[in-house]
Design a protein around this nucleic acid. Structure first.
Lengths: 332, 332
DNA sequence: TTTGGCACTCTTGGTTTCTGAATGCTATTT
DNA sequence: AAATAGCATTCAGAAACCAAGAGTGCCAAA
C-alpha cells in the first residue's frame, strides 16, 4: 500500500508525463510538492521498486510503467466531469433528434475523436437480429436487378444481381410479393433458410421463371448476417503523438489499423467502461484502448477510443460515459 | 533533340531510378551500354544541361528531373502490354458479370492498388442524373421512418428521418404511393424541386398529416445531388516508398489524403490517360498522378492512381487503360 | 526523516575524421 | 572527332569523439 505522499507523487508523475511526454525529474516535482529533490528521489526509488515507475536510462527522469498507469487508473484517478466545451459539442448530436441511433453514435464518436485526437471506433450495430420489414426489387437491365431488404430498425441493404434469363417485370413483381408475404418479420440471419424452405416451394409453383428468380434472390439475400461493420475515425491523428516520431513505428501502426480483424477484436463484452493499457490493448505496447459496450432497444455494439498510452484517461472515460448514457436516454 | 544514345541513356536512368530509388551512377550504366564510364559521364552532363537530369549533390549519381520524367513519359516510354498476372487479377472482376458497373470500377481499382502499391482513387459515379425508379418508406418507430430511393441504374440511397407528429402507417403508405406516381422517371438532381412543386400540392390535398409527411420526405430526399463520392484505397501503401522515410513528409501526405476536397480536385476532364508529374500533381512534389475519365451509359467519373514520382508509368497506364476499356465493354 | 552535496551516468548535439562512391576534367588513344 | 584512362576533387554517411547538461544515487549532516 502506498503512502499518501507516494500516491500524490505517482499522480503528479503520470499526469505530467501524459501532458509532456518527457520523463519527469525529481526537480520538477519538488517545486510542486515543496520539499527537496532528494526526498522525491528517495520516494521515486521506492515507487520504482514497487514496479510503478521506470527509467529510460540510468540517469533519466521517471516514466510510469504499465503497472504504474494501471495503478493510476484503478486507484488514483478520480471520475471527471466533462468540461463545458466537450459537453457542448456532444450535445449538438444528442439534442438533434433527427438522427437515428446508429448515426448519433457514429457522429458523437467522431466528435470525440476530433476533441481528443485519438482514434474512435464504433463496432457492431450488428443488424443480424433485425427483422425483415420489406423487400423490394428493381430490374435495372435486361438481365440485372437491384434487390433491397429493409429491416424494422430502418437498416437497408441492397445488392445488384444477375438474372440468368430474361424475366418480365411482372414476374419480378409477383416474386417480390410472394417473398414479402412469407419472410416479413423474420430475422435477417434466417432469411436464407426461409428463402430455401418457405419461399422456393411457392415460387416454384406459381412463377414461370422460378429458377432464375429464386437464384437471383437467394444470391442477393444469403450473405447478410456476417457484416459486422467497423467504423473508424481519426486514424491518422494518433500518429501525431511523439511516440510515433519513428517511421517504422508509424508504419507498423498504420498497418495494424488496416487490419479490420484486429479492430473487430476490440469488441467489448462487459458492462462498464474498461481500459486496456499498453500490451493489454493487444495492439501495440505504446497505445491504450478504452472501450464500452452499449445496447439500446436490441441494437448493441462497442464504442472505443484508441490513444497513446499517455492518454488522458479521465477525460476519455468521461466522454465515453457521457455518450453511453445519452445512448440510453435517446428517444429511439 | 536527343541523340539515340542519349535517349537510351535517359531511359535507362529513369527506369533504374524508378526501380531502385537511388541516384544512378555512370558505372552502373556503362556495364549495360558497354562503353566506358567516362563516355557516359559526358552524356550525362549533356542531359543535365538540357535539364533532364539532376544531381543530389556535386558528386552524386544522376536522378531524373521533373522534366526528365516528362520527357520519358512523352517521348521514350512505349505503350506496355499488361502482364499476364495483372490481367488475370483484373479479369476476375470483369468476367464476373454479377457486379454492377460502379462496384466493378471500385473493385478493379482496389486490385490495381494492391498490385502496384499505389493509392487508387475513384471519383464520381455521380448518380445525379440517375432517374428515380421507386421510393419506399418504412416506419421504424412512433416518430421515425426510413425513406429509400432507388434509381433506374440500381443505385439505392436511404435516410432515417424524424416525423414531427405521429403518423399512421396507412398515411405513410398513401404518401409513398402518391410520390411514386409523381416522381418516377425524373432525375435525382431534380427530386427536391419535384417534391416541392408537384408532390406538395397533391398531398396537401389528400393526406391528413400532410405537413409532417412532406417535411420528412423533403428532408430525406433533398440532399442527394451533391454527394460526389470519393473512394480511396491503399492510402497507406504509398507511405512505404522510401521518399516517405521522413516522419514529417509522411504526416504531410497523410493530412493531404484526409482532405477530400483536395482529392476531388483530381477529377479528370479530358479524354485519354493523363499523367501529372511532381508539382503538376498539385498534391506533393514527390508524387505523380495518373488519371482518366470514363463514361458508360450516362454514368461518368474519374479513375486515378497516386504514386511516387518514381511510378512505373508504363504499367500504371496499361492498367488504367485496361480498366477503362473494360468499363466500355461491360454489358451494363 | 529530510536535505545538501558530490560523484557518476547517460543523452544530446556538435565537431571531426575516414572511407568510398561518385564526378569533372585533362591528356591520351582510337 | 569521339571514346577512354587516369587522377584530383567533392561529398554523404558512418564512426568516433567531445563537452555540456540534466538527471540520478548515495552518504553524511541537519
Amino acid at each position: 500500500m502506498l503512502t499518501a505522499r507516494q500516491n500524490e507523487l505517482l499522480k503528479l508523475i503520470v499526469e505530467d508525463y501524459i501532458k509532456t511526454a518527457r520523463p519527469v525529474s525529481s526537480k520538477a516535482i519538488c517545486e510542486i510538492m515543496n520539499c527537496s529533490s532528494a526526498t522525491i528521489r528517495n520516494e521515486m526509488a521506492a515507487l520504482e521498486d514497487y514496479g510503478l515507475l521506470e527509467k529510460t536510462h540510468t540517469s533519466s527522469g521517471r516514466i510510469p510503467s504499465d503497472y504504474g498507469y494501471r495503478y493510476y487508473v484503478d486507484n488514483i484517478m478520480k471520475p471527471k466531469e466533462l468540461t463545458g466545451e466537450d459537453m457542448l459539442k456532444l450535445q449538438t448530436i444528442f439534442k438533434n433528434n433527427s438522427l437515428v441511433l446508429s448515426d448519433a453514435i457514429i457522429k458523437s464518436m467522431e466528435i470525440v475523436s476530433e476533441l481528443t485526437n485519438y482514434t474512435a471506433i464504433v463496432l457492431g450495430t450488428s443488424s443480424a437480429d433485425n427483422k425483415v420489414a420489406k423487400i423490394e426489387a428493381i430490374p435495372t437491365s435486361e438481365n440485372h436487378m437491384t434487390a433491397i431488404i429493409i429491416t424494422d430498425k430502418g437498416h437497408v441493404e441492397n445488392r445488384n444481381v444477375v438474372l440468368e434469363k430474361h424475366v418480365s417485370r411482372d414476374e419480378v413483381k409477383q416474386t417480390v410479393d410472394i417473398i414479402n408475404k412469407l419472410i416479413v418479420g423474420i430475422p435477417l440471419s434466417e432469411v436464407s433458410k426461409a428463402l430455401e424452405f418457405e419461399v422456393k416451394p411457392v415460387i416454384d409453383k406459381y412463377v414461370k421463371q422460378h429458377e432464375a428468380l429464386y437464384n437471383a434472390f437467394y444470391n442477393a439475400f444469403s450473405d447478410f448476417a456476417p457484416r459486422a461493420d467497423v467504423k473508424m475515425h481519426g486514424t491518422t491523428k494518433l500518429l501525431n503523438e511523439p511516440e510515433f516520431n519513428d517511421v517504422t513505428k508509424m508504419r507498423e501502426l498504420l498497418n495494424k489499423f488496416e487490419d479490420k480483424e484486429l479492430i473487430k477484436h476490440i469488441k467489448a463484452n462487459e458492462e462498464g467502461i474498461n481500459i486496456y493499457i499498453g500490451s493489454e490493448s493487444e495492439i501495440d505496447n505504446d497505445i491504450s484502448v478504452i472501450k464500452t459496450y452499449y445496447t439500446k432497444d436490441g441494437v448493441e455494439g462497442t464504442i472505443a477510443l484508441i490513444g497513446p498510452k499517455r492518454m488522458e484517461y479521465d477525460r476519455a472515460r468521461a466522454l465515453l460515459n457521457y455518450i453511453k448514457e445519452n445512448i440510453g436516454k435517446m428517444d429511439r
